[in-house]
Design a protein around this nucleic acid. Structure first.
Lengths: 225, 225
DNA sequence: TTCAGTGAATGACTCCCGGTCAGTCAATAC
DNA sequence: GTATTGACTGACCGGGAGTCATTCACTGAA
């Protein structure tokens, strides 16, 4: 009969329409300023319909965010394809993250959502799972590379691969957030260029976890300053 | 006549009453969930009166936050009093920050407010200035210590004191935020104890900016792992 | 062709909350 | 005693999240 399949397809399509409209509005206005009425308007649907597909505004926001994490993961995967050595792999990840920040700024801005638990009030179990699953995949990708580095004797083992991954990730993210929101302030008051600092700090951290022989072999490009 | 002075005093007192009520409510409920009606109720005043003293809810929130930054700065100052060497100074700061996190969790949580520019909409110029002035004082405190370390030859100078301060600060803050919000997740899924990681990562960074002779002299307590 | 059944979509509605402002009142000045 | 001031009030407004009784389009059996 095929009716059921068609219905299924249409429902999926409707879901996608809502998603696209929501993304457009959230990108433009942010979580707070965006209204469900606007999103409904943009999707050419009534507000009530949005709630057939998403539990709440936050839930819809999270759906868009999940897509962002996927996008980042794809960029990470592409970056590792080009790397020659494990050290280059890790530097490539830091570079890819920066590129993501530059090219997908709207998605990047969403990533802070999880850090504000105040705003988790009305999020479906489903979305939370989808989100942390996607995050998990990225952690695995980074940790695997670091793990290999430790096995190869390139990285010291006084920190576990997970610990290194977390430290590196958090530091990079924190700097990028400030580039996004307060670059001018840091530049004018402290005379620090945060974009340079991103490179310097990630290299510093990378260097600090490398073994002596690895440092000899893969001397990092000088910081030219 | 003294009338003016008395009025002035009373106004200051009223301001403090509002402040205390707001702090109580914000600590308990957070920015979003707290309502101005609640705060008015807690201050035994009408809502309208709150707006004679503060431009908006965010503005009032920021006032409480400024007090938090002051508190942190006092703890920093106390911690540096005990330090023997410059290296101990810096470790003391990291320790004091952690202590602040443990003892003044409510204030700590507020500090993320600035990182979410979405919520800066209705903040008075006055509050913004007060806030960044207070932040500025803390930066100065940290940078001065690092600057001395560089002059003493204890820290390498390939990063400026401001650059080191920013990197260290951001990394510590980022880890603390995760301890606050996602410690369980990190523990169960990645088998990483974030409290340990705080110490390990700050020591790692500290070590990575120390000069060779300094490393010999001030060998850090081993990471026991 | 008809019509009962189904479930997707609607939008008027409720509730809530931040912020306003015309009006009150007590203290002060004259 | 009267005018003035200004701190304070709280009913009110606008707007937005989320709801639900109703409508509507489609389907498939009779």
């Amino acid at each position: 009969m095929g009716t059921l399949e068609r219905k299924e397809r249409e429902k999926e399509q409707r879901r996608e329409e809502i998603f696209n409209a929501a993304r457009r509005v959230f990108f433009q206005k942010g979580l707070q300023a965006a209204t469900m009425d606007e999103i409904a308007e943009a999707a050419e649907l009534s507000k009530g319909t949005l709630y057939l597909y998403h539990k709440s505004k936050e839930d819809l926001y999270l759906a868009v965010m999940v897509r962002g994490i996927e996008t980042l993961r794809e960029m990470f995967l592409r970056s590792t394809a080009a790397a020659q050595s494990t050290v280059e792999h890790v530097r490539g990840l830091a570079g890819a993250y920066f590129e993501f920040f530059e090219r997908q700024r709207n998605y990047f801005r969403m990533f802070n959502f999880f850090e504000h638990p105040e705003f988790h009030k009305q999020v479906s179990e489903e979305m939370l799972n989808a989100c942390s699953l996607e995050q998990q995949k990225i952690w695995k990708l980074v940790i695997d590379i670091l793990e290999r580095g430790i096995k190869e004797g390139v990285f010291r083992s006084h920190l576990s691969s997970a610990e290194i991954a977390i430290t590196l990730w958090l530091m990079c993210t924190a700097i990028l957030v400030r580039i996004d929101t307060q670059a001018d302030r840091f530049e004018s008051r402290m005379h620090v260029n945060l974009r340079e600092l991103y490179r310097k700090s990630s290299d510093l951290l990378l260097e600090s976890i490398m073994t002596e022989p690895a440092k000899q072999r893969y001397r990092l490009a000088p910081s030219s300053g």
